[in-house]
């Protein structure tokens, strides 16, 4: 067993380790792993009253992340794996500031307006704002709708978005016209990108 720590900082790795740690049986499983020199999936499954496939998947998951190591063992000519702990100090470090949208400065200057016959349905709210927007995807029977409830910033922004026949306006100017401040920019970016992808805004 190594004493080195193992750090998870990438989102995908954090997601995988979090999924494994969140299982109901994880606590007891880790106890087994820390106290047995090594263990097979069938031994762990019988000890914890789990289905062998569940135990197998859990062990494989931890092995993939580098927490366990597995060794092939032959018994009665049938090979199987035995698992043991490789790293016992796990650290999860997720910096969510890295999730900030990129290119916001460029986005501010982008001139936009609603597209003609976009088909989106806007639900009016109070105080000069849109409360929700419903975007439709597909045609005919396969058409599906997606209703998005808007934040205060997004609602005010979309209320002041130029009409399809109006002159396109820079995002920063629409923000000023809507009486909003620059702190709203990231959430506006999100809804605008979604609406550009769905051909509601050009």
């Amino acid at each position: 067993m190594g004493n080195e720590s193992l750090e998870f900082s990438g989102f995908e790795d954090v997601r995988k380790i979090s999924t494994l740690l969140s299982r109901e049986y994880t606590y007891n499983f880790l106890k087994l792993l820390m106290n047995y020199r090594d263990i097979s999936a069938s031994e762990a499954a019988s000890r914890l009253e789990l289905h062998i496939k569940t135990a197998q998947d859990f062990l494989e998951g931890l092995t993939e992340l580098g927490i366990l190591e597995k060794k092939s063992v032959k018994e009665d000519k049938r090979p199987y794996f035995r698992y043991s702990v490789l790293k016992n100090d796990l650290r999860i470090n997720l910096d969510i500031s890295a999730f900030s949208f990129p290119g916001l400065d460029e986005f501010k200057k982008k001139r936009i307006r609603e597209i003609k016959e976009s088909g989106a349905v806007f639900k009016e709210g109070k105080e000069m704002a849109i409360r929700a927007v419903t975007i439709f995807k597909g045609k005919g029977r396969s058409r599906v709708s997606n209703r998005i409830n808007l934040t205060h910033c997004q609602g005010k922004f979309l209320f002041h978005l130029p009409f399809p026949t109006g002159e396109p306006m820079a995002v920063e100017k629409i923000i000023v016209k809507s009486g909003l401040n620059k702190e709203c920019l990231p959430e506006i970016y999100d809804i605008v990108q979604l609406m550009i992808r769905n051909k509601v805004i050009e």
């Binding site: 003609k116 016959e117 976009s118 806007f122 009016e124 978005l161 009409f163 026949t165």
Partner: peptide, 12 residues
């Protein structure tokens, strides 16, 4: 003008 451009959004 007859450029259409209907939307169901309110006009500020």
């Amino acid at each position: 003008g007859k450029a259409d451009g209907f939307t169901n959004r309110p006009y500020p």
